[in-house]
Amino acid sequence: DESNKPILLPNESQSFERSVQLLDQIPSYDTHKIAVLYVGEGQSNSELAILSNEHGSYRYTEFLTGLGRLIELKDCQPDKVYLGGLDVCGEDGQFTYCWHDDIMQAVFHIATLMPTKDVDKHRCDKKRHLGNDFVSIVYNDSGEDFKLGTIKGQFNFVHVIVTPLDYECNLVSLQCRKDMEGLVDTSVAKIVSDRNLPFVARQMALHANMASQVHHSRSNPTDIYPSKWIARLRHIKRLRQRICEEAAYSNPSLPLVHPPSHSKAPAQTPAEPTPGYEVGQRKRLISSVEDFTE
Rank of each mutant, 00 (worst) to 15 (best):
T186A: 06
I26G: 05
V20F: 09
L148V: 15
R242Q: 15
N140M: 00
D120E: 11
Q213G: 04
D141H: 02
P259K: 11
F134T: 02
N251F: 12
I230A: 13
H215P: 01
V200N: 01
Y29Q: 05
D179A: 07
N170F: 02
R284L: 08
N196D: 02
L37D: 00
V289R: 15
E2N: 07
K264P: 11
M210H: 02
D79L: 04
Q105E: 13
D30Y: 04
K147L: 08
R69M: 14
G85R: 06
H109M: 04
V257W: 10
S263T: 08
A211R: 02
Q281Y: 08
T274Q: 10
R242S: 15
M104N: 13
L256H: 14
E278N: 12
V160H: 00
C98M: 09
E17W: 12
T150L: 04
T112C: 01
K190E: 04
G93A: 13
M104W: 13
T116G: 07
P6I: 04
F199L: 06
P164H: 00
E62F: 02
S217R: 05
G131Y: 15
A265S: 09
Q14Y: 12
D120G: 14
Q21L: 07
V257H: 14
S3A: 07
L239Y: 11
K74S: 09
H100G: 14
D118I: 13
L206K: 00
V257I: 06
H32S: 05
T112A: 02
R238H: 15
L23A: 08
F108K: 01
P270V: 12
H129D: 05
P6M: 06
N140I: 00
S261D: 14
T274L: 09
H100K: 15
V214L: 05
F155C: 15
E91P: 05
H129P: 04
H258G: 14
F63P: 00
K126Q: 05
R18M: 08
H262E: 15
D179F: 14
M204K: 01
M204G: 01
R218N: 10
Q21P: 06
L197V: 12
L239F: 09
S46P: 02
V158H: 01
V20D: 09
R240M: 04
S219G: 08
Q268H: 10
D75W: 05
D30S: 06
K147H: 12
Y249D: 12
Q25L: 06
Q105I: 08
R282N: 14
L83C: 11
N132Q: 15
E278P: 12
S44M: 14
Q268C: 13
W99I: 02
I137N: 00
I151Y: 04
L183V: 10
L113G: 03
I34G: 01
M180L: 13
I71E: 08
R59M: 00
P255V: 11
G93V: 11
W229F: 04
R282G: 11
E168K: 05
I224E: 07
I110H: 04
G143V: 01
L51P: 02
C76Y: 13
S19P: 05
L8N: 12
P221F: 04
S15G: 12
E278S: 08
S227Q: 08
G90Q: 11
L254A: 12
F199V: 03
D185S: 04
V36P: 00
V257N: 14
K127G: 05
G90W: 04
A49G: 06
Q154E: 15
S19K: 06
E41C: 05
L165V: 02
D145P: 08
Q268S: 08
K147A: 10
